[in-house]
Simulated scan of single mutants.
Amino acid sequence: MIRIAAAAEAFDRDLEADFARIERIVAAARADGVHLLAFPEACLGGYLAHLDGGADQPPALRLDGPEIARLTAIAGDMVVCAGYCEDGGGDTRYNSVVCVGAGRVLGNHRKVHQPLRESASYDSGDSFTAFDTPIGRIGLLICYDKAFPEAARSLALDGAEIIVCVSAWPGSRTNAPDDLAEDRWTRRFDLFDRARALENQVVWVSANQSGRFGSLRFVCSAKVVDPGGDVLATTGVAPGVAVADVDVAGALAAARRSMAHLRDRRPDAYRALAPSMM
Rank of each mutant, 00 (worst) to 15 (best):
L273C: 01
Q114Y: 07
V79P: 11
G90F: 15
G211F: 13
W169P: 12
R137E: 08
C220W: 00
A253M: 02
R13I: 04
A27W: 09
S124N: 00
C220L: 00
A60Q: 09
D245L: 00
T234I: 06
V34D: 08
S215D: 13
T235K: 00
A82P: 13
D183A: 01
R263I: 14
R117W: 08
D183N: 02
E9D: 07
S215W: 07
A242H: 10
V100I: 03
G83P: 01
P59M: 05
M278D: 12
G214Q: 02
F19I: 02
A238D: 10
G33D: 14
P239Q: 08
R196W: 03
R212L: 12
A274L: 14
A156E: 02
F148E: 10
A20P: 13
E118P: 00
Q57K: 10
A197V: 08
A253Y: 04
Y122E: 07
A20D: 15
D126V: 02
A152Y: 06
R173N: 08
R184K: 06
L116N: 06
R212E: 15
H35M: 01
I4Y: 11
R271Q: 05
E23F: 05
A251T: 15
R3A: 09
A17P: 05
G45D: 15
I138C: 15
D247Y: 00
S119F: 05
S127N: 13
P59V: 13
R266V: 11
A42W: 00
P58G: 03
R173K: 09
L180G: 06
I22T: 08
D226L: 14
L48I: 15
K223R: 15
C99A: 13
I138T: 15
A181V: 06
E86S: 08
G103I: 07
K111E: 11
A151I: 02
V79I: 13
T72D: 04
V246W: 10
A69L: 01
A168D: 15
W185C: 03
V26S: 06
L157T: 12
A195C: 10
G88L: 08
L51A: 12
D77A: 15
A254G: 12
I162L: 09
D56A: 03
L106H: 04
D193A: 02
H35S: 10
R30I: 07
L252T: 05
R263V: 15
L140R: 04
